[in-house]
Amino acid sequence: MGGLQSSGTRRISVPNDDTSGVIKVSDSVVQRLKGGAEVKETQSASPPVIQPQSNVEPVTSLFPPSYYGGGTHKTSLEMRQDKEEALRENDQYWEKRLKTMEENHMMMNRRMEEEYRKAAKEVEELFSRLPAKREQPPCANAGQSVKSCYQKNPGAILKCAKEVEAFAACVDMKRINRLDSRQ
């Protein structure tokens, strides 16, 4: 089923009997266009017969004529002008949109710079409150004694309870002093 393909090609020819808008050319002109020899002088001497449009009977077609664009015919010049106008409008639209986007970008840039400056100022203020690097951290001696005790007694950390207690008391005292100095 469906295994056989058709062996020949098929052709359909549809004659165009619509002669409106067709220019009739004599046989001698056709021969000259083809580059062949001139047809007898007697035939070319007689003027070609041109029938006026009013004598031509309208050809009836099975299909009604259809036109694109609502039945209005435009010349190629009008179509080109319409296309150019559409392109100009499109260019204007994108130029306007690009300008708007650039303005928004500039506004966002300004806002980001302001926020950056504010953040940098806040960070500078925070770091200005910190003690200088030359100062030792509070309770450095007590912390050092806890560290050395832990190193001496790696398996028995409870033996360092006195040192840890002294370090915690020192830290509490420094915290209280700092809070009192802020008020």
Rank of each mutant, 00 (worst) to 15 (best):
M1H: 13
M1V: 04
S6A: 15
S6V: 13
S6L: 14
R10E: 01
S13R: 07
V14I: 02
P15N: 07
N16Q: 10
D17T: 14
T19F: 11
G21N: 04
I23R: 07
I23T: 09
I23H: 08
S26Q: 01
S28R: 02
S28Q: 06
R32F: 03
G36D: 09
G36Y: 07
A37E: 01
A37T: 00
E38W: 08
E38S: 15
V39G: 10
E41R: 06
S44K: 04
S44I: 10
A45E: 11
S46M: 11
P48H: 08
I50S: 11
Q51S: 15
Q51Y: 07
P52R: 05
N55L: 15
V59I: 00
V59L: 02
F63C: 13
P65Q: 00
S66R: 13
G70K: 04
T72R: 11
K74M: 04
S76C: 11
M79V: 12
R80V: 12
D82S: 01
D82L: 05
K83W: 08
K83I: 02
E85R: 10
L87N: 02
N90E: 15
N90V: 06
N90F: 12
N90P: 09
Q92R: 10
K96W: 12
L98D: 10
L98Y: 06
K99L: 01
N104V: 03
N104S: 09
H105P: 09
H105I: 13
H105S: 14
M106D: 15
M106G: 12
M108Q: 13
M108N: 13
N109F: 12
R111F: 09
R111A: 03
R111K: 02
M112P: 03
M112D: 05
E114N: 08
A119R: 09
K121S: 04
E122V: 01
V123R: 15
E125H: 13
F127W: 11
S128C: 07
S128V: 08
R129A: 12
L130Y: 11
K133F: 10
K133T: 05
R134N: 09
E135F: 10
P137M: 03
P138R: 06
C139H: 03
N141R: 12
N141S: 15
A142R: 01
G143H: 03
G143D: 03
G143N: 02
G143S: 04
Q144N: 14
Q144Y: 03
Q144D: 12
V146R: 07
K147L: 09
C149L: 00
Y150K: 03
Y150L: 07
Q151L: 13
N153Y: 09
I157K: 13
I157G: 11
K159G: 05
K159P: 10
K159L: 10
C160M: 00
A161C: 06
K162I: 11
E163F: 07
V164H: 08
A166H: 00
F167W: 10
A169D: 01
C170A: 08
D172H: 07
D172C: 10
M173V: 15
K174F: 11
I176M: 07
R178T: 09
L179H: 02
D180P: 01
S181R: 01
S181E: 06
R182I: 13
R182D: 08
Q183A: 15
